[in-house]
Nucleic acid binder design. Structure first.
Lengths: 137, 137
DNA sequence: ATAAATGCAAAACTTTTGCACCCGA
DNA sequence: TCGGGTGCAAAAGTTTTGCATTTAT
């Protein structure tokens, strides 16, 4: 018997959830993902979406971002990187051209007597669209 | 008549809440503040704590930090600075000796076609106490 | 006197969970 | 077949809100 306990089974639901998240250009909420996925799989439940997002996070396939608003947001890219939060439309997206500075972690350790595993930075402001919209006034 | 509409009234509750927050060495949750304040003012309600924290935030007296866990945390210091989150005991505190690098904001603007108002960084790891506790094993 | 603030409780909202059934390996 | 996954609905947990009353100015 080579069946092992505690294995992760592949399901249509989880595949679709991951595909949907990976193809999003921003970092959506569980509810947004639920709405998208429902178009293709109308009977899926929100509980399943939450359970699968949690499982994918535990497997290291995605990252859960919990900041900015009441909702958690999910990032299909598990690599550490910086994020931008639009204060106007609430969208959350990746920062380009600004690599994570690991030297900072060492500096913080020395100055604060802590052990740093990693850090992340959040930039707040107006995204491209909201910036342009404001300029039109 | 020099009474104006929309003014902010001074109350014992708000004073106590602000005093409690300012004297905390970490960044507590609304519920923690509620528990502290109740010792001195047993009839205060959690709703009042939330309302006052919101008002103080709107007035720019404090900062609301919404990351790391389900709860919002509040920071008696409205100045922008970096934070440390202990992944073991969940405490959130200020980072010392690591000033906010405003140059980064300009770099992000250039690379991402956005308008950055400010940024904040979160360092995750073990705080002094949890680090020492681990070393004892 | 007037409107802001409070206390209480109910409501709103996001996320989790129990359970019976289903389905992938 | 076996145990992980799903759907549904109820529950949990944080934050907000309606309302009558109190209180600061």
């Amino acid at each position: 018997m080579d069946k092992k306990k505690g294995f992760v089974r592949k399901t249509k639901q989880r595949d679709l959830i991951l595909k949907t998240l990976r193809s999003a250009d921003t970092h959506p909420t569980a509810d947004w993902i639920y709405e998208q996925v429902k178009k293709e799989m109308p009977n899926i439940s929100l509980g399943t979406v939450y359970r699968n997002l949690g499982k994918l996070r535990d497997l290291g396939e995605i990252t859960e971002l919990s900041f900015g608003s009441k909702y958690s947001r999910f990032d299909g890219n598990p690599e550490n990187h910086y994020h931008f939060v639009c204060t106007e439309c609430e969208k959350v997206m990746d920062i380009k051209g600004c690599p994570v500075d690991k030297e900072l972690d060492r500096q913080v350790e020395l100055n604060n007597d802590v052990e740093v595993a990693f850090h992340t930075s959040l930039f707040y402001g107006l995204c491209k669209d909201c910036k342009n919209k404001k300029e039109q006034d």
